[in-house]
């Protein structure tokens, strides 16, 4: 009774808001919920000629095939390691940059630095990886620098040990400026009275950072962290397939690049959907886990 009354009241008051929401709702239904139906081909032997409903069921055969594959452990390990490195090194980087920029008093220097760090975000991935490939060759820029400091030039992208560093560092270079925007806007919202109060209490710059700035932007950091965790295993295949070659498969081949090779190039759709579904399930689990942890310890959470 009470609920229906509430709904009615809410509807009356916010009718226009609900109308505004309709396009978004349609978008999600069409592009995010309807496609989920296609995920059932993970449990089928899909043949385009027979269609999704017409293809025969095979149960968990596609999943067991993946679990039994000789590459299963390696793919999981590479995906997790690369993600974790990306998270450990890549997550704090924009926060630190934002904090540093926040302390800069020279307006001109600040805006130049910001622009310079944003720019790489707008370079197409193909160009970035093309540059990395060229720079990493024995005659490339990176090797010129190495030899300048007395090192020995070597084909860097053919060394499995260096692959992760190149991947992670280039990602940070490309995204650090862009990622710092949200923190900069959070920092702009911190009440300046708090700083004044802290100064009166005798806090130096460092103490102000620890006790005023960080607590103020903590909710943003936590939300960003949870979102990042939710896509931890969700490494895109584009950068990997542009950067790797058989000699670096050992550290470079990740779940999504494997899906690309098997699914799109070999047309094994059911198998690759099964792997993708497995991957998403892990992601979802991670998201739930982080959210719960965050709720318990910091009282900030997605829901």
């Amino acid at each position: 009774m009470k609920l229906s009354y509430q709904i009615k009241k809410d509807w009356k008051r916010n009718r226009s808001l609900y109308f505004i929401m309709i396009p978004v709702l349609i978008f999600y239904i069409l592009f995010h919920y309807k496609p989920m139906y296609g995920a059932i081909i993970a449990f089928k032997e899909y043949s385009p000629a027979l269609g999704v409903t017409g293809s025969p069921w095979v149960g968990f055969a596609n999943f067991t095939r993946f679990f039994k594959s000789v590459y299963f452990i390696r793919l999981i390990r590479n995906t997790i390691l690369l993600s974790v490195y990306n998270l450990i090194l890549g997550f704090p980087a924009p926060i630190i940059l934002a904090l540093l920029l926040n302390e800069v008093r020279n307006k001109k220097f600040k805006s130049i630095t910001q622009t310079v760090t944003y720019l790489p975000h707008f370079i197409s991935l193909i160009v970035v990886t093309g540059m990395l490939t060229d720079f990493s060759m024995t005659t490339g820029l990176f090797n010129d620098v190495i030899t300048m400091f007395g090192g020995k030039s070597s084909p860097l992208l053919q060394d499995p040990k260096l692959y992760r560093s190149i991947y992670v560092l280039s990602s940070i270079w490309q995204e650090v400026g862009w990622g710092s925007i949200i923190y900069l806007s959070a920092l702009a919202g911190v009440d300046s009275q708090l700083y004044e109060a802290a100064q009166i209490d005798g806090a130096g710059k460092w103490k102000q950072l620890i006790h005023v700035t960080l607590p103020a932007i903590a909710p943003v950091i936590v939300i960003m962290f949870i979102l990042k965790m939710g896509s931890l295993m969700n490494m895109g295949y584009e950068k990997t397939i542009l950067l790797y070659n058989p000699s670096t498969y050992e550290t470079a081949d990740i779940i999504s690049s494997y899906i690309y090779r098997i699914g799109l190039l070999e047309q094994d759709w059911s198998y690759s959907t099964a792997i993708g579904l497995f991957n998403s399930a892990i992601n979802f689990g991670l998201l739930l886990f982080t959210n719960r942890m965050s709720k318990r310890y910091s009282e900030t959470s997605l829901w």
Partner: peptide, 15 residues
């Protein structure tokens, strides 16, 4: 929505 957006192949095919 993060749950299954990653099942991208399934998505394109069903779409």
């Amino acid at each position: 929505s993060l749950l299954l957006t990653a099942a991208m192949l399934a998505g394109t095919l069903a779409g």
